[in-house]
Amino acid sequence: MPAWLDIAVRSILFVVILFFITKWLGKKQISELSFFEYATGISIGSIGAEVAMGLERSIFHGIIGVIIFAAIPFISGVISLKSKKFRDFVEGTGTIFIKDGKIMEDNMKKERYTTDELLELLRRKDVYQVADVEFAVLEPTGDLSVMLKKENQPLTPKDLNLAIAPIKEPQTVIMDGVIMDEPLATIGRSRAWLYTELDKLGVTVENVFLGQVNSYGELTVDLFDDQLQVPSPQDRALILSTLKKCQADLELFALGTEVKEARQMYSENSEKLQKAIDKVMPILKG
């Protein structure tokens, strides 16, 4: 076998082996979360390259090496699942850098981080003032996780006591003009329904680059033809305005009638409707 063919065969073989090993080790290997994944990832790569290019080396020996380097992080991962102590030893624990808003100088010294490096890590988290931080911990991966003081955290609906409607994840039902049957089935819709909705918007499937259905069953689309204007779903806004109009009408009737019982009935119902509107408002507005 000529040398170039040998190299080609070895390269292809090792690409396939490395592909399946990374698949087997899973997402953790790619994210290189701990020392093991980091070190073994490099070693597996170099062994592969070495054997592919070094013709004097045996392919079989290379495969053994790669498998052992892949098996050890896998086994350590399995043991880590069972034992917290082993996990702390292998994967390391976080080091607290800022606690109660105060920098822990000793911990920084232990990890050999300078003040500049701490400031840099904080800046990466969009924090420019150390005084804004309540708690920060250096993860084993070298990332800094930062918890801001409550007054510096982004405002949430909970802080404002706002009622908001819960939502579910949207489903992508059209990609590149092709209908996806599985997501459609997940939300319990058929192709016929989709065609009706597309008709309502006045577009064809072929023209849709991306189509998604939100948790209220409304279809939103992005078209290949960006000149076309597509109406956004108005169903919920319409219901809300109808309800509001009817509530106002009931109030008017209450003012207009001379009959005592009728007046009471109207005002009671207008109140009832108002309460219902208040309750359903977050859903119809959201």
């Binding site: 579910k168 069953g217 119902n269 009832k272 359903v280």
Partner: peptide
């Protein structure tokens, strides 16, 4: 799709029905 919203909408429908 959301169960909580489903219930709220249904309750609103019932109130409207009473009216």
């Amino acid at each position: 799709q959301d169960f909580e919203s489903k219930r709220t909408l249904h309750e609103t429908m019932m109130s409207v029905h009473e009216v």
